Simulated scan of single mutants.
Amino acid sequence: MFYVYILYSEVRSKYYVGFTSNLEERLKKHNTNHSGFTGHTGDWQVVWTENFETKFEALKREKQIKSWKSKTLIRKLINAARSLNSGEEVI
């Protein structure tokens, strides 16, 4: 199983899109002190996930979401998933 995920940092007010086969371990890595985009913040939280059977499918979806380059579209995706689950909304 592969996961496409969106992380959010309140400190940076930014989203990060990625994919992995081990979401828990990947989140730990994002929250370590390293030199990449997610480094030095430590407050990244998973706000959205989607599951895929193959790495190819997950990579394709990740690239699609990243191509949007729009915080508004990412928020719409997160809100659509949350409204199905609990009625929460991301502002």
Rank of each mutant, 00 (worst) to 15 (best):
Y5S: 04
L7A: 12
S9V: 11
E10I: 04
V11W: 00
V11H: 07
S13V: 04
K14C: 02
V17W: 07
V17R: 05
G18V: 06
F19Y: 15
S21M: 01
S21C: 03
N22G: 06
N22K: 07
N22M: 01
L23H: 11
E25H: 07
R26K: 14
K28T: 05
K29S: 09
K29D: 00
H30K: 03
N31T: 04
N31C: 06
T32V: 00
T32A: 00
N33E: 12
N33S: 11
S35V: 12
F37R: 14
F37E: 09
F37G: 00
T38P: 05
G39L: 09
D43T: 06
V47D: 10
V47P: 05
T49A: 00
E50W: 00
E50Y: 01
T54F: 11
E57A: 14
E57H: 10
A58Q: 09
L59C: 03
L59Y: 07
K60F: 08
K60D: 14
K60L: 08
R61D: 05
R61T: 09
K63C: 01
Q64C: 07
K66I: 15
W68D: 10
W68K: 03
W68T: 08
K69I: 02
K69R: 15
T72S: 13
T72G: 09
L73R: 15
I74Y: 09
R75C: 08
R75S: 12
L77Y: 07
L77E: 03
I78C: 03
I78P: 02
N79R: 06
N79I: 04
R82E: 13
S83P: 00
L84G: 02
